[in-house]
Design a protein around this nucleic acid. Structure first.
Lengths: 153, 153
DNA sequence: TGGGAATATATGGGCGTCAATGGGTATATG
DNA sequence: CATATACCCATTGACGCCCATATATTCCCA
């Protein structure tokens, strides 16, 4: 499986380390399995993460913008300076930068939610509430959910 | 990782030295890890920097402008004639030329902002404000920032 | 197929190494 | 000779690596 799926709740130890769920580690390419990138989610108080390969794609896209435009600077600043890279140790653990923990309200535990090509980290209670909320929103429009799930390519 | 990412705030000591963040040093090619180039940002009161290899890329960008336009001369002059090279010592520190420090209003601390293929140095408060402003501008067009981050290949 | 052994995962902690910072001294350069 | 800059050494705290354990999972063979 090369997608981030399912959810896990892991503890943060005294040193601030937290285990990246094993199934998530397996999504990372073998070459860069010891480094991930993290950044603040745009729409929610959560942290998003993924492998470094994705960052290189983003870099390519930004590089294609007009170098002398204001958009270039805005994207470059908002993305590259806000992204942090973190090393995953041999046991599969990593450190969440303090600023990101604050942003997500994470203290002693982190909830990991698979999102396909990336994953989210939430303060457990808020994260679970968010899943309920989004499920509820979807069910309000049952029709579109059914379409989404049954539609063939 | 071969890109300048994340942000750091480092102190400038009595002698005027400041540490280039370790992760930035690793972006520089092994061969020229003790030399970087610095120049005034065209659009903001900040200093931009990168490895010497990047010079060719800058030249290419400027060359893509219309040769007979006023912009061509302006960019060419403002950038190339203003570039200074600086040595990074064995501890990873370098000196910021006085003129550049004045231009950016940097005194006792410098904030480093990763920008992908180069980095920016700001007076910390101004730099943080600039990031906020950038993000605010982009969030007005939420769609585009989200696209940049999540779009697949 | 049942049960024990081997393996993997999440977690805890010791310790060496490295990054950021400070300062002394030699060397260069005008 | 005076000032600037590079090299050397030292300190502190953070982080990575190693080792250890408990629980969960998989494997394998009788």
């Amino acid at each position: 499986m090369d997608l981030f799926v399912s959810k896990y709740i892991n503890k943060i130890d005294k040193k601030g380390r937290v285990s990246l769920p094993s199934s998530f580690r397996n999504v990372l390419p073998r070459a860069n399995r010891n480094e991930i990138i993290l950044y603040k989610s745009i729409k929610t108080p959560s942290i998003e993460g993924c492998g470094v390969g994705r960052l290189k794609e983003i870099a390519k896209r930004i590089n294609n913008l007009d170098f002398f435009s204001e958009d270039y600077d805005d994207f470059s600043t908002s993305i590259f300076s806000e992204i942090v890279t973190t090393n995953v140790d041999k046991e599969g653990r990593f450190l969440i930068p303090e600023e990101l923990k604050l942003y997500a309200g994470i203290k002693t535990e982190a909830a990991f939610f698979g999102q396909g090509h990336f994953f989210q980290m939430w303060e457990p209670k808020q994260g679970l509430k968010n899943t309920e909320d989004s499920r509820r929103r979807l069910l309000k429009e049952k029709k579109s959910l059914r379409m989404m799930l049954t539609q063939q390519k």
